[in-house]
């Protein structure tokens, strides 16, 4: 099963390598990763999506906790959460297909962020499934490129993540 792990870390050089190393040494492939600074100076938020069994991931989160520069760790298994990914999708489009692509984008509440005589670039936010579905719908038109971010996630309500 896919786990989404949040780690609040000190914004130091090498901290990403330490975190990634914990996953790598057990042969885990990180499916997606997002790292950015938070509103608190000196602190960064990492969100790591990884497939693996419960026991091994429990061991990894405990190891994450042990890293001196890691302040907090959550494995969001049962938390009520809001989570988003963002994708930019560049699709082949000419005068003939452009309006149909626009329609599909509208259904997915995606934005057109760039248009040229031969392409359209769409920005879509949502969960993995939604972005996958949009990509499937656009495939028949010819996808030139996609760029997708890792996931960001917050627990709903007052509780901290």
């Amino acid at each position: 099963m896919t786990h989404t792990i949040t780690a609040i870390v000190q914004d130091h050089p090498g901290v990403l390598a330490r975190v990634a190393g914990l996953f790598a040494r057990r042969g885990f492939n990180i499916a997606s990763l997002s790292v950015n600074r938070t509103h608190r100076p000196g602190m960064s938020r990492m969100v790591i999506c990884v497939d693996g069994d419960q026991l091994t991931l429990e061991q990894i989160t405990k190891q994450l906790h042990k890293l001196v520069e890691v302040l907090k760790v959550w494995d969001h298994v049962d938390d009520p959460v809001v989570q988003r990914e963002l994708a930019l999708i560049k699709v082949d489009a000419d005068a003939r297909t452009r309006s149909e692509i626009f329609q599909i984008a509208t259904i997915f509440r995606a934005q057109i962020v760039d248009v040229s005589d031969r392409t359209v670039t769409i920005e879509c936010t949502g969960l993995t499934d939604k972005i996958d579905a949009l990509v499937r719908m656009l495939e028949p038109f010819g996808i030139k490129e996609t760029a997708r971010t890792g996931r960001v996630i917050l627990v709903r309500g007052f509780q901290d993540t």
């Binding site: 050089p13 090498g14 390598a17 330490r18 190393g21 040494r25 890293l67 001196v68």
Partner: peptide, 9 residues
């Protein structure tokens, strides 16, 4: 990195 408790540059 994999064999220290912590390290500094």
């Amino acid at each position: 990195m994999p064999v220290v408790k912590h390290s500094y540059l």
